[in-house]
Each structure stands twice: as structure tokens, then as C-alpha cells.
């Protein structure tokens, strides 16, 4: 069974004037069909305003479909009875770490979610332990979040989601505000959760390099899924991606340029290692 299943999913932002008359309708999701299997690492790409975040917000019912259906872990997201179950199973991490951290001590922040749903205290402590460990932040347990770097704050936010023991984590541009080191920290923490705990990861990002190791990539444009495939399949279509205001990793772009210059470099090179191997063979 698919963990996420969207069928002809539509979302419209409707603006009304003071009398309640419709002023404008903006279709943010336009008949999206999309399946995500449990345990996968999935990336969603798309330019600003392409509908990525609107889609993400459906996954834990911050928004509900205008039309169509969305099943999360087999539950219909339009049914209010499923709301809390879905939110528990699909945690979200947003772009700005400062907007997500509420407590004055790291461990209290991580324990906030389970405490809120009435998990008994010994169990909360256990979950806080495990969650902090899984993102490599155990030694900061009793620190103030204010003093942490951006990457550390973001990992605390992820630990807070992990403490809810979700089956899936949706990350909406989690690295946009981080320095290179912070980006590496967050990404490797997420990859570890996927590999070791089998958590389904849905990563929305503008950094093409972060997508290279994903199992599956979706590209969105004007509220539709316009491309779908493995990173290699997607990134071998340099020109198409550019039309959608996207890019490819710098290494892929260089490989493409070298191929255009007449070198026998195959399409869809993703990593430095691959390009080094290819070029050394030509030498």
C-alpha cells in the first residue's frame, strides 16, 4: 500500500471581499496524481509558487483538498476524524528554525509534542532520549536553543517531530537559511532517519545537490506534477528543468557542457566521483 496517495487533488486559494463575494481564485494544486511508497526518500522540486508547499501542507492536513482525494497512510485527509492520526504520522519541519522552537531548554522543546497528546512522562523521557540521539543532538539536551547554530536548531526541530514517532517527515525547505555545514548536518540526519528508522522522507528543496541521493523526484509546475523519476532520469533533462525555472547540480551541468563540447560523457552524471571516473577513462 502507498503511504501517500493523491488522486486528482485540487486546491484553490479563494479570496473574498468584505461582503464575502469571491474576488479571485488561484489554483495552487491542479489535479495532482501522486503515489509515495512507505520508507522512501522522496524529493519535490519546483519554482517559487509552483504548488510544492501547498501540497506539503495537505500531507498533515494544515490544508484540505478543494477537490479530489488524498490518502495518508490509508486515511482520507478530508475526513476530520482522521485529523490527529494523520498529523501524528506525518510530521512537518519548516524553513525557519526560529519559528518552530518554543521551549527554553532543548529537551523540553523535543518533549512538547508527546506531552501535548498525553504520553506518560517516563515514555516522554525515553522518546526525547531517542529522538535527540537520532539527530546527533544528545549532548545539547539541557542547553538553551537560543545558543545553537541554525543547523543544530533545525535538528532539534526534527527531533521534536521524531518524538511523535511519525511514519513520515515532510521537510519544507529545511536548509534554506543554513550555512553549508548546517545543510550537511540536517541532510545527513534526515538520511539516517530514513535508512535506520525507515521513516518516509518528503524533502522540498531548491538545492539540487540535496536531491541526488533521493529514491524518487517529483517536479511541480503551476500546480501540476510535470516530471517524475529517479534523480538520474530527472537531471539528465537539463533543458526541460531550466524551462521549469530549475537547475541541475553543478557537477551535472559541467558534465553536460563537456558533452556538448564533444567529450564522450554520458547524460545524467550526478556525483563528482562519477565524473572523475568518466574523465579519467577518456584520458
Amino acid at each position: 500500500m502507498n503511504f501517500i496517495e493523491a488522486r486528482r487533488l485540487v486546491h484553490e486559494y479563494i479570496r473574498r471581499d468584505e461582503e464575502g463575494n469571491v474576488e479571485s481564485i488561484q489554483t495552487a494544486l491542479d489535479h495532482v496524481d501522486l503515489d509515495i511508497e512507505p520508507g522512501k526518500f522522496v524529493a519535490v522540486l519546483g519554482h517559487n509558487g509552483s504548488g510544492k508547499s501547498t501540497f506539503a501542507k495537505h500531507l498533515n492536513v494544515l490544508l484540505t483538498p478543494t477537490e479530489g482525494t488524498l490518502w495518508v497512510d490509508g486515511k482520507d485527509a478530508a475526513d476530520e476524524e482522521n485529523l490527529w492520526e494523520i498529523r501524528k504520522n506525518a510530521g512537518m519541519v519548516f524553513q525557519n528554525p526560529d519559528n518552530q522552537i518554543i521551549a527554553s531548554v532543548v529537551e523540553e522543546d523535543v518533549g512538547f509534542g508527546p506531552e501535548n497528546i498525553g504520553v506518560p512522562t517516563p515514555e516522554i523521557l525515553k522518546r526525547v532520549d531517542q529522538s535527540l540521539k537520532s539527530v546527533g543532538m544528545s549532548e545539547y539536551r539541557t542547553h538553551s536553543p537560543n545558543k545553537l547554530s541554525g543547523g543544530q536548531k533545525q535538528r532539534v526541530a526534527i527531533a521534536g517531530v521524531m518524538a511523535m514517532e511519525p511514519k513520515c517527515i515532510v521537510l519544507d525547505e529545511p536548509t534554506a537559511m543554513l550555512d553549508p555545514n548546517g545543510r550537511r548536518e540536517v541532510l545527513s540526519a534526515v538520511q539516517r532517519l530514513n535508512e535506520e528508522k525507515g521513516v518516509t522522507i518528503i524533502l522540498i528543496t531548491h538545492y539540487m545537490e540535496e536531491v541526488v541521493d533521493a529514491d524518487q523526484v517529483f517536479v511541480m509546475d503551476q500546480g501540476k506534477v510535470v516530471m517524475e523519476g529517479t534523480p538520474r532520469e530527472i537531471f539528465s533533462q537539463v533543458e526541460t528543468l531550466k524551462q521549469y525555472r530549475l537547475d541541475v547540480p553543478q557537477i551535472t551541468l559541467l558534465a553536460d557542457e563537456l558533452r556538448k563540447a564533444g567529450l564522450a560523457v554520458p547524460k545524467g552524471i550526478l556525483t563528482r566521483q562519477e565524473l572523475v571516473d568518466v574523465l579519467c577513462r577518456l584520458y
Binding site: 553549508p180 555545514n181 553543478q250 563528482r272 579519467c280
Partner: peptide
């Protein structure tokens, strides 16, 4: 110190190490 070089700079170092 938590920074890096552009991806291509790393590639060039790798290639150099392999004798190019």
C-alpha cells in the same frame, strides 16, 4: 570552519590526484 569550496573546485582536485 563549516564552509566549503564550489563543487567544481573539488572535482578539479580529484582529477589532479588521478593524474589529469
Amino acid at each position: 570552519v563549516g564552509l566549503s569550496a564550489p563543487q567544481v573546485t573539488y572535482l578539479m582536485h580529484d582529477l589532479r590526484r588521478r593524474g589529469l
